[in-house]
Design a protein around this nucleic acid. Structure first.
Lengths: 343, 343
DNA sequence: CCTGCTGATGTGAACGTACACATCACCGGA
DNA sequence: TCCGGTGATGTGTACGTTCACATCAGCAGG
């Protein structure tokens, strides 16, 4: 369990620094610094000598010292909830890759609950690391409050939200996605359509609900109060068992694929066939959705694309670029076998 | 998109430091340092004055400076593959929470492929941040090579592996889990059992396969060559379509729940009923597994527990504790409806 | 032969903090 | 009265790097 001890060398505690490299290379420490920051004014031959010395000593620049003197942490903070879910996890993975390629590191902080105190603590932990930029993947309503309270003065972007705060958000057009899903059900002849939404404090849940309601409104169909869920399959299942006691609807639009899965389960137990008796649409297109029973009709979002663009946007702003694109990413309806024409 | 400008104050660029606080509090900077590191020898009254000054100025300790002078980064590195999967994601979330509570931050690096170069690059990126400890959640066979090549000299732990390298690993007893699953099928009267495993370079895939083979051996049953998969539902589906052309087995033990889901899908398409014609066991117990059609019999691992213990172990070692527990976490068989007695 | 310029390299700060040590007031005991 | 000890506080220095500036050689142009 302990780190490999090297009993041979007496007390080689200190890691080599820029001056050690300079000594070996026979130059001044400043020349080494220039070599590290690929300055234009350094002779190729000198550069080679320095690089050889670096190699020989196994030198690594000390990021703390660098951060101290430049007052740039090269760290991007991510405030996230629900990182175990497919969407956020996929975005974060893309964010990490893009950040690393750009020479930045990531600091991810999970918030356990959506309570204000929890959000504030998470944000505080990030600010303590003097992050240069912030990405928010969380119930955004309360995050904005905390952002104000803590006087967060770094560029930030919220992910997977709506265009409510266009200046700071990068988004899949959730409203449009919800309209696609709802329209699909309407086109199939359904007139009594239910919606199981995500938690109300998630802006994207709100957006999907908006899209759903608008599309129903445009079609002059009766709107019912959506059910407020928690994104889990368990919720979809129990809500389904409850709702199916009154079979006064023939289609459901679920706020995400997990809840759709749970709802399908409830249909089976209630003796309803999908899509024969009940059409179901999900949201997200998680990789498993294609293998549900039956394969799920859903709305695909490109989570990785969103993640990449978040980094692009933030780095652009750090560089001082202006005119950056906030254009929403368009979602796509994936029709599989969980929806059918209403008899 | 830009950070809130404060046009009022002229050029308040520099963040307040320890000396600014000292000036306001009317003490020396060293006294402020003592207040921050809760030194015993400071008068309560003085402490209060310092705290008031900190509050007034909105002072935050500069972690880079602290890291520089103490040569402790307070960062734990995580080298991960497949962070979008439920297991790793759950562990990482627990790790992050535990690390944060202990005053550490996390630096997560994803490796895109399991190629050696990719692993080495990820490890390099982590070492450049002078991490104090390392957690590995990745195909471990090759990681060990890279660990040696880069002379990684920090405490490390590999997660979710077997006990192959007990000194450095913290593990759910995968072999035992696989035996539980296999035994369950045998107890139900199945004699022709197939195994769809994970990628061979994942030690845990290897362990599950070992458990499977040993249990079959103990029961004197015929062993077949396991199919090497890639953890995805897609693979389970296509492998299933292929395998089911020859219906010379009545049960499958899948290396994870996603592959089991895909396999179930293939069964439906091939006109086989689960569990009537085919019994299926998964591994992991992802939250969705309870809502598959039918609900999946699987082996539950406590991913969060593993994550917490990883941090506990590493922090213990950093503190110099000895006698830390590496006892494996025991998995649990969850019997649902995807398995039945062989006719 | 001097002047001014340019490219390559070196020297002195400074970033913000913690450690080692110095200082100082105060107290109790011989 | 003086001395040693202790608790609270202050002063110097170092961590490893980059920035601003200084130096120096070489060269072209008058």
């Amino acid at each position: 369990m302990s780190s490999p001890e090297q009993a041979s060398e007496p007390e080689r505690v200190r890691a080599p620094n820029i001056r050690d490299v300079a000594r070996v290379a026979g130059v001044s420490y400043q020349t080494v610094s220039r070599a590290l920051n690929d300055s234009p004014s350094i002779r190729p031959e000198t550069l080679a000598r320095v690089q050889a010395a670096i190699e020989e000593l196994g030198y690594r620049p000390n990021q703390a010292a660098r951060a101290l003197v430049t007052s740039r942490s090269r760290t991007i903070g991510v405030l996230a909830a629900q990182t175990v879910h497919y969407g956020p996890a996929t975005s974060i993975q893309a964010i990490e890759t893009a950040a690393r390629e750009a020479g930045y590191r990531l600091s991810i902080t999970n918030i356990s609950s959506s309570e204000y105190a929890s959000i504030k603590a998470g944000l505080d932990h990030l600010m303590a690391q003097s992050i240069e930029a912030l990405i928010v993947i969380a119930p955004q309503v309360r995050v904005f409050e905390a952002l104000n309270d803590l006087q967060v003065a770094v560029p930030f972007v919220t992910l997977e939200s709506t265009g409510l705060n266009t200046a700071h958000s990068l988004w899949v057009d959730q409203i449009q996605g919800a309209r696609l899903a709802t329209r699909h059900l309407i086109d199939l002849g359904h007139t009594e359509i239910m919606h199981i939404s995500g938690p109300q404090d998630w802006i994207e849940a709100e957006a999907r609900m908006q899209g759903f309601l608008r599309e129903l409104g445009d079609a002059d169909l009766r709107t019912r109060a959506p059910i407020l869920g928690d994104w889990t399959a368990h919720f979809g299942y129990y809500a389904g068992l409850e709702l199916l006691r009154y079979r006064d609807f023939t289609a459901v639009f679920c706020g995400n694929d997990q809840m759709a899965l749970g709802f399908m389960h409830a249909c089976r137990e209630s003796g309803l066939s999908v899509p024969g008796d009940m059409s179901i649409v999900g949201f997200d297109d998680i990789p498993e959705a294609a293998h549900f029973a039956p394969p799920l009709t859903t709305v695909r979002q490109n989570f990785a694309e969103i993640g990449r663009r978040a980094i692009e946007l933030l780095l652009g702003e750090l560089r001082g670029d202006t005119e950056l694109s906030h254009a929403p990413v368009q979602p796509e309806l994936i029709v599989r076998q969980s929806t059918a024409r209403h008899a």
